[in-house]
Measured scan of single mutants.
Amino acid sequence: DEVRLHVNGHTIEFRGIDEEIFKILEEAAKRGADEEELRRLAEKLLR
């Protein structure tokens, strides 16, 4: 299960996240989070 999030012209792939987590990451990206911040956030949410 892989999703792709487009951030500042880059595509970031995440594996094993559900739609709810994806929406949180998408919102963070809209607020200016970079790839590293998004990955840290995803790790926290998946715990």
Rank of each mutant, 00 (worst) to 15 (best):
D1Q: 11
D1T: 09
D1K: 12
D1L: 13
D1C: 11
D1A: 10
D1R: 13
D1V: 12
D1H: 13
E2P: 13
E2Y: 13
E2D: 08
E2L: 15
E2R: 11
E2T: 15
V3Y: 15
V3N: 12
V3Q: 15
V3T: 07
V3R: 15
V3G: 08
V3L: 15
V3F: 15
V3P: 06
R4M: 08
R4W: 08
R4E: 06
L5N: 02
L5W: 00
L5S: 01
L5Y: 00
L5Q: 01
L5P: 02
L5E: 02
H6P: 04
H6N: 12
H6D: 08
H6I: 15
H6L: 09
H6T: 14
V7S: 02
V7A: 04
V7C: 04
V7W: 05
V7G: 02
V7R: 01
N8L: 03
N8P: 03
N8V: 02
N8Y: 01
G9F: 03
G9C: 04
G9M: 03
G9H: 02
H10W: 03
H10K: 14
H10L: 11
H10V: 14
T11Q: 06
T11I: 14
T11V: 14
T11M: 10
T11W: 15
T11K: 03
T11S: 09
T11Y: 15
T11F: 15
I12G: 01
I12K: 00
I12R: 00
I12F: 03
I12M: 04
I12Q: 01
E13Q: 05
E13A: 11
E13M: 12
E13K: 09
E13D: 06
E13V: 15
E13Y: 13
E13R: 10
F14P: 01
F14N: 01
F14V: 04
F14S: 01
F14T: 01
F14H: 01
R15W: 14
R15K: 10
R15Y: 15
R15L: 10
R15A: 08
R15M: 11
G16T: 02
G16F: 05
G16A: 03
G16R: 02
G16V: 03
G16W: 05
I17T: 05
I17Y: 03
I17Q: 02
I17N: 03
I17C: 05
I17P: 02
D18M: 04
D18K: 06
D18Y: 03
D18G: 13
D18Q: 06
D18T: 14
D18N: 14
E19G: 12
E19N: 11
E19A: 14
E19L: 11
E19S: 13
E19M: 14
E19P: 13
E20F: 14
E20W: 15
E20R: 14
E20N: 11
E20L: 11
E20D: 09
I21A: 10
I21F: 06
I21W: 04
I21R: 05
I21D: 09
I21C: 09
I21Y: 04
I21L: 10
F22N: 01
F22H: 04
F22L: 07
F22M: 06
K23L: 08
K23H: 07
K23Q: 07
K23I: 07
K23Y: 09
K23S: 08
K23N: 06
I24V: 11
I24T: 06
I24Q: 08
I24S: 05
I24P: 00
I24A: 08
I24W: 06
I24M: 08
L25Y: 01
L25G: 00
L25P: 00
L25M: 03
L25R: 00
E26F: 15
E26N: 10
E26P: 00
E26C: 10
E26V: 14
E26K: 14
E27G: 09
E27D: 10
E27P: 00
E27C: 13
E27S: 09
E27Q: 12
A28T: 07
A28Y: 15
A28G: 03
A28S: 08
A29C: 05
A29E: 02
A29R: 03
A29Q: 05
A29Y: 12
K30F: 14
K30S: 09
K30M: 12
K30D: 05
K30I: 11
K30A: 07
K30L: 08
R31N: 11
R31I: 07
R31T: 10
R31Q: 12
R31C: 08
R31H: 12
G32F: 04
G32L: 03
G32H: 02
G32V: 03
G32C: 04
G32I: 03
G32E: 01
G32T: 02
A33K: 05
A33H: 06
A33L: 10
A33P: 01
A33N: 05
A33T: 06
A33G: 05
A33S: 09
D34Q: 10
D34N: 11
D34M: 11
D34H: 09
D34A: 08
D34P: 07
D34Y: 06
D34S: 13
E35A: 09
E35W: 10
E35I: 13
E35N: 05
E35V: 14
E36A: 13
E36H: 12
E36N: 11
E36V: 12
E36T: 12
E36M: 13
E36Q: 13
E36W: 15
E36P: 13
E37R: 07
E37H: 09
E37L: 09
E37T: 14
E37N: 08
E37F: 14
E37G: 09
L38K: 00
L38G: 00
L38A: 00
L38Y: 01
L38I: 13
L38T: 00
R39L: 11
R39K: 07
R39P: 00
R39S: 04
R39E: 02
R39F: 13
R39Y: 15
R40G: 08
R40H: 08
R40V: 08
R40Y: 12
L41M: 12
L41A: 01
L41S: 00
L41C: 05
A42I: 07
A42M: 08
A42S: 05
A42L: 09
A42C: 12
A42F: 11
E43F: 14
E43I: 15
E43P: 00
E43R: 15
E43M: 15
E43L: 15
E43T: 14
E43H: 15
K44Y: 15
K44A: 07
K44D: 07
K44G: 06
L45Y: 10
L45C: 09
L45A: 05
L45E: 02
L45V: 03
L45T: 02
L46C: 06
L46P: 02
L46A: 07
L46N: 05
L46S: 11
L46F: 08
L46V: 10
L46Q: 08
R47F: 14
R47W: 13
R47Q: 10
R47V: 09
R47A: 11
R47N: 10
R47G: 08
